[in-house]
Design a protein around this nucleic acid. Structure first.
Lengths: 150, 150
DNA sequence: AAAGATTGACTAGTCAATCTTC
DNA sequence: GAAGATTGACTAGTCAATCTTT
């Protein structure tokens, strides 16, 4: 087991599984993974709304991509975008009932895809893997917030 | 720990770490991650040469992308592309001395980046994570090779 | 003048059509 | 006619310039 085996495996798993799930979601639910990502974050936010900036923080899709994706979702009637009355510089994206519906229909497809293509094969190591990867994220977040003495 | 925590964490780690390593490699060595990927596979092949198809199999970068990347590498003098005498339909890409040199200079930068951004945080779970992710890959490869009875 | 957000222009990556060899 | 590979046309994603509000 070399030093980079875990990293190489992560890259390959991502390259193999993401396109598979994306295609399945798209063909069976008419929903690309980026839409799912954004709708899920909105639906799990209290009252189903977040500013574009907040959405960029929590979603996997990058901040720079969020404007485009929300634009697409708005055109599809799954999200509404309104000015934030607390700070009129910013906009809040709010999931619509149609958006919640679409997400609800897509969820089982995505979840079972994740299980079939990924989680199932982790077996008893699932939680160890999750916690280990979350430590990587915590370190990233920390180094961004405060690039202090390394 | 939900059922999808490990998957969500993998997506986020990828989204955070890949751009960081790519930028570092590019700014310090003038080498995008895709170039590194291809050069590494060629350099570790016996005699430093693979057909384009083989390269598409082993590299992380997709088969459809390989032609473009090898074209760029050839223009930069890091790879040569010659017809395969055993089967004149196919081309073999061969890493040049300049390519090996560039890879040799980039390797420590990439390896230390992986350690700093990723492996370090896995701690004692490093090998468990590697083996778990490799099981996912093995399953993928299997289901592609023979999509038989599930 | 700084923060939030969008948009036009650019780069990376994919897909289908094509070309050559088997 | 199928396999290996490239390429033009398209889609996804990024970056810098811009606009509005604070």
């Amino acid at each position: 087991m070399t030093d980079t085996a875990s990293w190489a495996a992560l890259l390959r798993v991502h390259a193999a599984v993401v396109p598979a799930l994306d295609q399945e979601l798209q063909s069976r639910c008419g929903l690309p993974l980026t839409w799912y990502d954004v709708l899920l974050e909105l639906s799990s936010a209290p009252s189903g709304r977040l500013t574009m900036g907040e959405l960029g923080q929590v979603a996997v899709v990058s901040r720079s991509r969020v404007s485009r994706v929300v634009g697409e979702l708005e055109a599809a009637g799954l999200v509404e975008r309104v000015v934030n009355e607390e700070d009129r510089r910013s906009l809040v994206a709010a999931i619509t009932p149609a958006g919640r519906n679409r997400l609800r229909r897509a969820a089982p497809v995505y979840l079972s895809g994740i299980e079939r293509e990924f989680t199932r094969h982790l077996g008893g190591d699932k939680d160890v893997v999750a916690r280990a990867l979350e430590r990587v994220l915590a370190a990233q977040a920390g180094s961004k917030a405060k690039p202090g003495p390394g």
